[in-house]
Every structure is written in structure tokens, then in C-alpha cells.
């Protein structure tokens, strides 16, 4: 038997909205420690890793580990029926192939019950090494979204260069080119408005912008985003979900032929 309750449905609504264009089907691995999901997009170029710790839920019970394969678009259809302030409860037992979503209004005057059919999804699971990164950049998530969208109007790829003083995003295309340079900024009103650059060694990598733009759909989940880079390694774009976990996006680099 599995049961998990969130005080506000908004979080899960936003999480699914931010990943369902990249991956349409995914398996939620449930265990005593929480719910995890790991899935690659259809081109196997990017990967989403979601981790929701059990202690971040209002209530979390999983008698034994089990998997719930879901179509994220179908899940999103049901979550759209939840009010963002509704209490959200998920329930499933290994026996039947359904997961129940309960949406309870704040005044408890309305209780909605949706049952989603579960699916058998065979997916390659990838072992993601917990590596050290040559460069780690934290910045306001809205700023990162603006950068990738602005450069996306100039070219298809972005060259990211991190030195000890700044991080540079450069794009070029038919109409011309653009470079956006961000310097470290620590003394800000709110900590999440900081731009922090930790560089062990300089990096210079190229990535397809359309994936980074897609990742930035998660901007509403966290006020800041952390970008981790190492030469010739996939970039990690991480949105920390306060008190419960994270959504991490991985994207393989483009390599000069």
C-alpha cells in the first residue's frame, strides 16, 4: 500500500507541467525514502531526474518499494483538475494497476477522486555518477530562462564558457550573433538573487538551446537554478524544491566533429 499527501497540489502540478513535454511516459519509483523518477527524452540526449523525499510530504507511507508507470500527459490532465491549494493525496496498492488522486479543497467542502490507469514502461535506467564538476554556477532561475530564450532567438546552440570571473553564453545564427556575460553578484537583498560562480577549472561547452529552453519550464519551481559543468560531460541544470527534493535535467554536449 502506498499513500502520500501534499499540503498543496500546486507543487506536483508544476513539476509535471515542467517535465511532460520532455518525457511523455515515466516510472515513479516509490520506496520508504520517497518518490523518484528518471527518464530520458525520446532522442536519448537529455534526462530528467526527479526526487521527492518522503519527509517533504505531509504524510508518506510505502509498505514496500514498487513502481508506478504513468503517462505524464494523462497525469497532467488529472492534476489540472486540482486546485493549486487543494490537499493532494496519492494512493495505490501493488495489486491493481491504478493510482488514485484525491483533491480536497481547503475548506473540505469538496473532495474529488481521480483514478489513473498505470502502465508497464520498460525504460533503460542510467547510472548517473555523483561527479565533481569543474564549474558550478547558481543564478536566479528567471535570469537563466531569459538568457536561453533570448539566445534561442539568435541561434540553435549556446556556447557556455566559465572562467573565475564570469560565465558567458554565446550564440550565433543567420542574422548575427549574441553574447551574454554574467558576473558573480553576492551582496543581494535575497540570497536567491545571487549569481555565484565556483570554478575549479575553466570550461567551454556547447549545447542545443531547445533543450535548455525546455528545462527552463521548471523556472516556477525554484527562485534559483544551479548549472554544473565539466569538460565533455553532460550539463546538469538543477532546480531545488525547498524542503522536499529537486528536479535535475541532464543534457549531453555537442562535440566538434
Amino acid at each position: 500500500m502506498f499513500e502520500a499527501q501534499m499540503a498543496q497540489a500546486a507543487l506536483l502540478k508544476q513539476i509535471i507541467e515542467s517535465i511532460r513535454e520532455l518525457i511523455t511516459e515515466a516510472t515513479f519509483e516509490v520506496s520508504g525514502t520517497g518518490m523518484m523518477l528518471q527518464a530520458m527524452d525520446s532522442s536519448h540526449v537529455s534526462l530528467v531526474a526527479l526526487n521527492l523525499r518522503s519527509d517533504g510530504f505531509q504524510l508518506f507511507r510505502a509498505d514496500r518499494p514498487f513502481s508506478m508507470g504513468m503517462n505524464l500527459n494523462h497525469m497532467a490532465k488529472m492534476l489540472k483538475c486540482a486546485g493549486k491549494d487543494d490537499t493532494l493525496t496519492m494512493r495505490a496498492d501493488e495489486a491493481n494497476d491504478l493510482v488514485t488522486f484525491l483533491f480536497e479543497s481547503p475548506g473540505n467542502e469538496r473532495l474529488a477522486e481521480f483514478e489513473l490507469k498505470l502502465m508497464d514502461i520498460t525504460s533503460e535506467n542510467l547510472g548517473i555518477p555523483d561527479a565533481e564538476y569543474s564549474a558550478t554556477v547558481s543564478m536566479p532561475s528567471a535570469e537563466f530562462q531569459r538568457i536561453v530564450k533570448d539566445l534561442g532567438s539568435i541561434g540553435d546552440t549556446v556556447e557556455i564558457t566559465v572562467t573565475k570571473d564570469d560565465v558567458r553564453f554565446a550564440a550565433s545564427g543567420d542574422i548575427g550573433n549574441a553574447t551574454i556575460k554574467c558576473r558573480q553578484l553576492l551582496d543581494t537583498e535575497k540570497p536567491e538573487d545571487r549569481t555565484l560562480i565556483e570554478m575549479v577549472e575553466p570550461v567551454n561547452l556547447t549545447f542545443a538551446l531547445r533543450y535548455l529552453i525546455n528545462f527552463s519550464k521548471a523556472t516556477s519551481l525554484a527562485p534559483s537554478v544551479t548549472i554544473k559543468l565539466s569538460t565533455e560531460m553532460p550539463v546538469v541544470v538543477e532546480y531545488k524544491l525547498s524542503d522536499i527534493g529537486y528536479v535535475r535535467f541532464y543534457l549531453a554536449p555537442k562535440i566538434e566533429d
Binding site: L126, P234, A252, K254, I255, D257
Partner: peptide, 14 residues
């Protein structure tokens, strides 16, 4: 021209 890599070479499949 640069070519897009897949994730497999970087992450071990298990």
C-alpha cells in the same frame, strides 16, 4: 559543425 552526443557514453546503463 558540432554533432549532438547521446547520453549513453556518459552514463552507465544498468
Amino acid at each position: 559543425e558540432s554533432s549532438q552526443q547521446a547520453l549513453f557514453p556518459y552514463f552507465a546503463q544498468f
